[in-house]
Each structure stands twice: as C-alpha cells, then as structure tokens.
C-alpha cells in the first residue's frame, strides 16, 4: 500500500495532496497543471516535497519530520514517462535489461520472454529506440520498467504523446498488464476515457488538491464517452 501526504510550492502554485493507493490501478486524474506529474516525481524520488510523508508497503520513503529521503534508485518504483525516455545509445534489448543489470538480478529468461510476449515487442529487440514508432517506444518503456521488478509502477501520461489510433492500440496492452502482472500501478492522465478503461480507483486533483476519491464513477461525465456511470 502507498500512502502519500505531501506539500510543495512550485512557483505560484501550491501542491497539497494526500491519498492512498492499494492493489490495482489508481488513476490520478485532473486537467493539465494540477500537479499530477509533480506528485509522480515525488513518489519516484525525483522531486523533493517541502513537507510530508510517503510510505510504500510499510517502508517510509520520505518523511520531512524524520528527515528520511530514500534516493530514487533505492525505492524500487518503476516509471513510464510520457516521452518514453528510452536510452538512445542502447538497443531495445539492452534497454529492457538495464534495470536487471542495475539491480544485480540474475538473468531470468522466463520473465523476459513473458514481458516481451505480453507487450508484443519481440520483433523490436535488435533495434535502437530512434527507429521505433511512438507506440512501440511506449511499449518498450513499460517493459523496461516491469523488468526492473518494481514494487509499484508509475505511469505518467504514457499515451499523451500518441495519436488516437495509437492510443487504442496500446490500451489493450495496459489492460493486460493490469490483469496479469499484479503490480500496483498509479496511472496519471487527463483523459477520462483512458481512466475509465484502466483504473480501478480514481483520485481527482484540482489545483493541487485532492477533490474526490472513489471508483471511476466519481469522474464528471464528459460528452458521452462513458456508457454507465
């Protein structure tokens, strides 16, 4: 379980949010500029909150009062970023293996084959990231994060840089991931349709604060994209 209570000033914008997330997919939902990406960065350890506490499965990752701040590389929290951020100098295969190398895990051909099959990226292994399409890149990015064996997977607008057709192409993979991998996920998005398909729980953010928490039905209905609410 993930518990987050953080405050952070970002320019003239104040983030002051508290929420918890358990198994399944928790969506952080809100318009652009509501602090979703900053929240993700703080959970991953890439940005330091001014005040607050972040704990995962009973382990404190950040606590401003106790002066605890576990560095990102020791948190074992995987990230999939909007732009993929694949390493351009490494092949897809080596990108996928990167987390395993850095964590000193032994090669696990079965886990590798499973993730490659789940995301359907077997035909890309020898390529360089520069030669991938947007959708392929994001699938490899998901695979790279998974193969580092994280305790929690953060997906920060993983589909936002893709066109509508590509989004439809990737969503099924993310659904498979949710139903198959058993890793709790936090899914950041401003797209209600995406969130309805993926999330089991929604944390709605407005201007840096949590506005509502609940099942996907807490989201406001938007232009008939949902059939039942």
């Amino acid at each position: 379980m993930l518990t987050v209570t953080v405050e952070k000033r970002l320019g003239d914008f104040a983030l002051d949010a508290a929420f918890t997330s358990e198994s399944g997919v928790t969506a952080l939902f809100g318009a652009s500029g509501t602090g979703k990406t900053s929240l993700i960065a703080m959970i991953a350890g890439l940005m330091k909150p001014d005040r607050g506490r972040i704990a995962l499965d009973g382990e404190t990752l950040f606590d401003s009062d106790a002066r605890i701040d576990v560095p990102a590389h020791k948190r074992r929290i995987g990230c999939v970023f909007q732009e993929g951020r694949l390493f351009p100098h490494l092949s897809v295969k080596h990108n996928l293996d990167y987390g395993r190398w850095m964590n000193g895990h032994a090669a696990d051909a079965q886990a590798f084959a499973h993730v490659v099959e789940l995301l359907d990226i077997g035909h890309l292994l020898a390529r360089r990231p520069g030669k991938l399409s947007g959708g392929e890149r994001q699938r490899v990015a998901v695979g790279r994060a998974l193969l580092a064996r994280p305790r929690l997977l953060l997906l920060d607008e993983p589909l936002a840089s893709l066109d509508a057709a590509r989004k439809q192409e990737i969503l099924p993979y993310l659904e498979r991931l949710r139903d198959d991998a058993g890793i709790p996920m936090i899914y950041v998005s401003h797209d209600a349709h995406e969130v309805r398909r993926i999330a089991t729980r929604v944390v709605m953010l407005e201007a840096g604060k949590v506005a509502a928490v609940g099942p996907p039905t807490v989201m406001p209905r938007a232009g008939g994209t949902s059939s039942n609410a």
Partner: peptide, 11 residues
C-alpha cells in the same frame, strides 16, 4: 534520461 536510469535502480 538520467532520472529514468535512477528509477531503474542506477546509483
């Protein structure tokens, strides 16, 4: 890219 490396466990 360096941030991505950190989240993958690179010190």
């Amino acid at each position: 890219l360096e941030d991505a490396a950190s989240t993958l466990g690179a010190g």
